[in-house]
Design a protein around this nucleic acid. Sequence first.
RNA 1: GGCGGCAUAGCCAAGUGGCUAAGGCGGAGGUCUGCAAAACCUCUAUUCCCCAGUUCGAAUCUGGGUGCCGCCUCCA
Length: 485
Amino acid sequence: MTPIELYNTLSRRKETFVPREPGAVDIYVCGVTTYDQSHLGHARPAVVFDCLRRYLRLKGYRVRLVQNFTDIDDKIIARANAEGKDPLELADFYCQEYLQNITRLGVERADIYPRVSAHIKEIIDMIAGLIERGAAYPAGGHVFFSVAAFPEYGKLSNQKLEELESQGSGAGDEEQYKRHPVDFALWKAAKPGEPAWDSPWGKGRPGWHIECSAMALKYLGNGFDIHGGGMDLVFPHHENEIAQSEAYTGKAPFARYFLHNGLVTVNGEKMSKSLGNFVSIDEALARYPAELWRYFILSSHYRSVLDFEEERLEAAHKAWTRLNRAVWDLEEAGVQPDWPGLAAVWAGMETAQNNQGTELESAVYAAARRLDEALANDFNTPAAMAVLFELLPAIKVDGRPQRGLAPALGFLKEVLSDLLGVLAPAKPGGVNDALAEGLLRLLVELRAEARKKKDWTTADRIRDGLARLGVKLEDTPEGTRWTIS
RNA sequence: GGCGGCAUAGCCAAGUGGCUAAGGCGGAGGUCUGCAAAACCUCUAUUCCCCAGUUCGAAUCUGGGUGCCGCCUCCA
C-alpha cells in the first residue's frame, strides 16, 4: 500500500500523511455562508473532499467528516433585511438548498453539519476561556482576539504582524475598540434588528472565525487530522482559527494538515458571488449530468486553479463519455464483473492473482496499483484518470470471451462509481414511455428494411429525422443502436 | 507594498534531478462502413516563459527577471 503524501499549507510542502490516531481520519471542511445560491466554486471543495474521503476509506481508514454552516453573518443579515425576511430562516433556506445541490452532485453526506446558531453556548464558553487566558478582551460590547497574545500569529499564511498592521482594515465601527489593528472580533455587540443572544458581554452574536474553532474542537477535538477549505480561506479565516484554538487549548497544532483547494475561475477571474460571475450548481446541473461535473472538477489537480470554460466542458464531456462507454460496452456484451475490490488489491491481499492471470488481468491489477500511487501523491486525480485512459485500449469486446474482461469491468465500475462518482447512472437511450419506445423500434426496423433494399434515401431520411429529435442512430455489426441526448 | 500560487503541444493537463516529456480534447492518416456515427490502430512538444548558476545530468534545485492569478474587506 502506497503511503499517502499531502501538501500541507502549514509547512508549504508535501508531507507523509500520519493521522492522529492510526486507522482513523478526522476531517473538518469549511462549509458555506448561507445567504445565496451555491455555485461551482462551492461544488469544487464538496466534490474534492468527498472523493478524498472515499479514497481514504478504501485505504482502510475510518473517516469522520464535519462540515459547518455559517448561518449567522453580516451578509445574511443584510440580505434578510433587504428581502424583509428573518435572517435565520433565510440562512436555513440556503442550507437546504446547498445540501440538496451537493447531494445531487453525488456528494455523500458529512457525518455532522453543525450550524453556528446551534452552538452559541460553546462559542461563548470558548470566548470566555480566551478572555481568562488573556488572549481576548471585551470592549464596547464586543470581544476581540488579541494577536499580541499569540506570538505565532501569521504562521499559516506566512505573514508578519508588522506587515499586516501597516495595511489596517480601516473601516467599521468596531475599529475604535481594537487594541491592535489586526485584532479581530470574536463577539459582536448587537445592533437593532439583528439576531442576538445573551452573553456575559451583553447581547450580541459571534464573529466570523470563532464558530469553526468552537465546532471543530467540540466534534473532533484538538489536533484533528485534516482541515480543508478553499484557498481564499487561508487568510484570515484559517489563520484566525489557529490563533483562537491554539491560544485556547494551549496546544499545537489545532489541525495537523491544512488542505486548500484552488479556486474556480471564469475567464481567468475568480468565480464569486460578489463579482456576479458565478454559475449556480442548479444551472450547471440543468446542462450536464452531475457525474460529468464531478469528472470536470476531478480532471484538474485540487490545488490548481480550475477555469470554467465552455470548450473545456465539451472536451471533458467527450472524454467522460469514452470512459462510460467502456463500461456500457462490457455490460452489453454480458460480461459479469469479477473483482476483489480496490481495498483488497491495495492492501496487497491479491498479489497471487497478478502473475497467474492473462495479460489483460495483470494490466488491470497494475492499473489499480498505479491508481493508488497517483492518488497517494497529494491526491493527484488527473494522473489517476490517465491510468484509466491508458487501460482502455486493452479492453476490447470482440465477441469472444476473454478472461480479463471480468476484473476489468469490476475495476472500472468500482473506480468510476464508488471512488470518483463519475459513472453515468444509466446508458443513455432509455425511453421513459412505452409508446415512444415502440414507435422508435418500429422506425429502426423500417430503416433496417430500407437499408436491406439499398434504399439509402429512406434510411437517411429516418436517421436525419430522428437526429433532429435528439435521437442518434449508430449502425454497428450487431445492429442499429440508438442514444437519446 | 507584503504573502502565496501558476507559466509544459493548437487547447486542457500530469510530470516530487536520470530510461524515448503521462493522459484528455482537437487535428492528420488508416481499419470498419452504402454513407455517417461509434469503436479501434498509427501519427501529432529534440523540448518545458526568459537569463544566469548548482550538478556527470535540470521541465524538476538555487538566484534574478517577465507575465498572469489569488489573499491582505466578505468569500469555497
